[in-house]
Design a protein around this nucleic acid. Structure first.
Lengths: 199, 199
DNA sequence: GTTAGAATCTAACGAGAAACAGATTCGAGG
DNA sequence: CCTCGAATCTGTTTCTCGTTAGATTCTAAC
């Protein structure tokens, strides 16, 4: 097996281990020894791939954040151009939940630690967060403009309530309770009713 | 001024300071020096009131958790006995939001750190969490039984989606954007529509 | 095989923070 | 005033953990 591959795999293993520990122990509580143990490696091996603990953890957060943005954007891009605004919201809900429930360690690490990041990293994180918020703002605005979505509630609040419900899902869902698809369906159902124009 | 009062006030000041730091820095990142600085006291003063750092932080979490439970239960108890199930849910939403948005430091400390608690404290915390979940389970079951609430979605998932939206609110709401009452109204509106039986 | 470089380890240092001990100030009652 | 105890501080100890240095093993190419 080629050298590059093996090295890259070790790097991924450490990164995944860091995500796991970070999501459970928090930013300050994540010790390199624990990360190393999960990755089946000694702590100093981390310094072969990252220049500091902070950089490793920052990468975990970035990956966790980007994964959601990219998957949602890609899912939306894959839809037919004439899809209705509400259908696009349904799709975004599904995509968001798929990431946070399936790649939950990275997502959880990013979500749970957002408020605890050191100032400089927090700043970078906010940029990505705003980019993602823009996607949803667009989705909601389109739906309101198309009359498919009720205009009698504060759009920002409504949007954040939905995102809150989505981000919270990993806290209570676990695979043993049933397939991701069921949660997705329920969420789409509730959100669609909650936001759509009453007839 | 009586001695007891002053002493009790210092204790409260330290506890509030701990809540503030804990909500921003996370369980492991909360240093006694920082707490002490916010409380305008030296670090060892903490040991006059608590036997360890862990006990202080645990109390913050307990208070943050209990505050929500108690306020919601008290609000529901104050309602007329013949209130409809949906009205009771509206009231619970309002009460929950009032606590997490107004007493946000304790709530945030409890919510954000729930997953990072040391095992023994986490266990105690789960007991309270289940007690609170029971209250909501009851609310939802009553509404379904009364036919005021749609029975065609998974009740547990729906309940957790709502609680997620509520718990997430402090992450995006801030007083400058407008009064708590507005958020409460929007939330009640969206949830009521999201869960109620389609006509 | 041998070697060079990549990958990983073992051992040790040093900063930072919790906890403890003892000294000190403050404030109410005699 | 003066004293006694409550409340808080200063100085010190101990331990944990990130980081560094240097040694060591593994692997691909010649």
């Amino acid at each position: 097996m080629p050298r590059e591959r093996k090295s890259a795999r070790t790097r991924e293993r450490i990164l995944a281990a860091a995500a796991q520990v970070l999501s459970r122990k928090g930013w300050a509580g994540t010790r390199l020894v624990d990360v190393a143990e999960v990755a089946a490696v000694q702590a100093p091996a981390v310094y072969y791939y990252w220049s500091s603990r902070e950089e490793l953890l920052a990468e975990v957060v970035t990956v966790g954040q980007q994964a959601t943005l990219e998957h949602v954007v890609a899912s939306l891009a894959a839809m037919p151009a004439d899809a209705s605004a509400l259908d696009r919201i349904d799709r975004a809900i599904a995509a968001h939940l798929e990431v946070v429930l399936r790649r939950s360690e990275f997502s959880l690490a990013a979500i749970r630690n957002a408020a605890q990041l050191p100032a400089d990293i927090r700043e970078r994180q906010l940029v990505g967060q705003h980019a993602y918020a823009d996607v949803w703002r667009g989705l909601v605005e389109d739906a309101v403009a198309a009359g498919e979505l009720t205009a009698d509630v504060d759009a920002r609040a409504a949007r954040m309530l939905v995102l809150g419900a989505l981000n919270w899902a990993p806290e209570w869902w676990n695979p043993e309770r049933g397939p991701v698809e069921d949660v997705v369906a329920t969420t789409q159902h509730v959100v669609r009713r909650g936001l759509s124009t009453p007839r």
